[in-house]
């Protein structure tokens, strides 16, 4: 049970049950879809980016498991008022945190800047679920690059 708690931390369960920023955004200027064909997880990410390249608003809609929903919920909160460059850095940090073996990561640097999102470190021990945690982030990357095709993490 303890290792399951590493994955399903209270914060993750809470965000999955009550996702924040869970709404459409009619005046978004960037929008991207994420889709995991094997899981059926689907999400649409909305961003409002100003002329200075700062993400002024972020939201999402869709359906997915607790991990992908919580990840999208927390990510959209976190990237608000961040520059595009900063959001890209966060993508890299998050990606490393959930995909690289923990022993390879420098404990003083792993997850730095991710704040509460560092709770996703537990996903690392559940290889089958990494794609759930990263779906929103890959969708963000596509939205920032203004790519038209849906992001996949399969």
């Amino acid at each position: 049970m303890s290792d399951l708690r590493d994955l399903y931390q209270d914060l993750i369960v809470d965000h999955s049950k009550n996702p924040r920023n869970f709404r459409e955004m009619p005046d978004a200027n960037r929008c991207a879809d994420g889709f995991n064909p094997l899981c059926g997880d689907k999400l649409r990410l909305y961003l409002k980016i100003d002329d200075e390249g700062v993400i002024r608003d972020a939201s999402f809609k869709g359906s997915g498991c607790a991990i992908s929903t919580a990840s999208a919920s927390m990510m959209t909160g976190m990237i608000k008022n961040q520059s595009i460059e900063r959001a890209r850095d966060l993508f890299d940090t998050f990606h490393q945190l959930v995909t690289r073996p923990h022993e390879e990561l420098d404990p003083n640097e792993a997850g730095i800047g991710l704040g509460k999102m560092a709770v996703f470190a537990g996903v690392n021990e559940f290889p089958a679920r990494v794609k759930c945690a990263t779906l929103a982030w890959h969708t963000l990357k596509n939205a920032l690059e203004d790519k038209q095709e849906a992001a996949h993490t399969e």
């Binding site: 399903y8 997880d41 759930c132």
Partner: peptide
């Protein structure tokens, strides 16, 4: 209220 992938993992 619980997604099948979470059920499967647990």
């Amino acid at each position: 209220g619980v997604h099948p992938h979470d059920v499967g993992t647990i």
